[in-house]
Simulated assay, not measured.
Amino acid sequence: MKKDMRFLAVVMLLLISFSSYNASAQQVQKGQFLLSPFLGLGYYYAGSGLAATIGVNGEYAFTDEISGGGYLAYTRWTHDYGYLGNDYDYTYNFIDFGARASYHFAKLLRVSNKKFDPYAGAFLGYVASSYNYDGPANSAYDDDYDGAVRSGIYAGARYFFQPNIGVFGEVSIGLTPISGGVTFRF
């Protein structure tokens, strides 16, 4: 956990270093809704193998600094290997959904670029899983990923290249380690 917190601290310092200082910035304003479809690489539950996540976040700005809403994500993780002449192929499917809340740092950090929105937050949700196995029938392996409540933290930044359209990137502990996508501001 200490290592994870240090990682997020470094990300926040990088976000601060890329911003200029001026008290007039308001990147997210009270009453706005942010809809952010995303793609993620890696997955919290996935060990080795390839995991790709597709999802969407939706957040309402309660104030110029605090937003909250929900997320929905689908992850497919495949793991294929051979051992003693047998092929073992596992495919997992995860559906994650829940609530998330963000603090937008632009005003606190006095970011002068009104197109740049640094933020961090936490989420609480549920994950459901299923898997398919293609291998020897005598394998003792069984799906060890049951549905569970999950929580996590994230840090990210958005850049609005149009008044209501931007791009974003996030790092996260608890869902997908790295993700990015497009944000639509309503």
Rank of each mutant, 00 (worst) to 15 (best):
P163C: 00
M1C: 12
L35K: 12
G135H: 11
G125W: 01
G174S: 07
K2F: 15
G49P: 09
S17C: 09
V149D: 08
G174E: 03
S36D: 11
G98L: 01
Y43T: 10
F7Y: 14
A73T: 10
S151R: 04
Y145H: 01
A128P: 11
N93F: 05
V56T: 07
T53V: 05
S179M: 05
A25D: 13
S48N: 14
Q27T: 15
D87R: 01
K30C: 07
L109D: 02
A99W: 09
Y131V: 07
Y71M: 12
L13Q: 15
Y119D: 04
V127S: 00
Q162T: 14
N86I: 02
N22A: 15
D134K: 05
I178Q: 04
L84D: 15
F62H: 10
Q162H: 13
I178S: 01
P136D: 11
Y74W: 12
Q27K: 00
Q162R: 03
S172A: 08
S172R: 05
G68A: 12
V56W: 00
I173Y: 13
S17Q: 09
E65G: 09
A157S: 02
F94H: 12
D143M: 07
E59S: 03
R110Y: 14
P37V: 02
I173K: 08
K3N: 14
K30F: 02
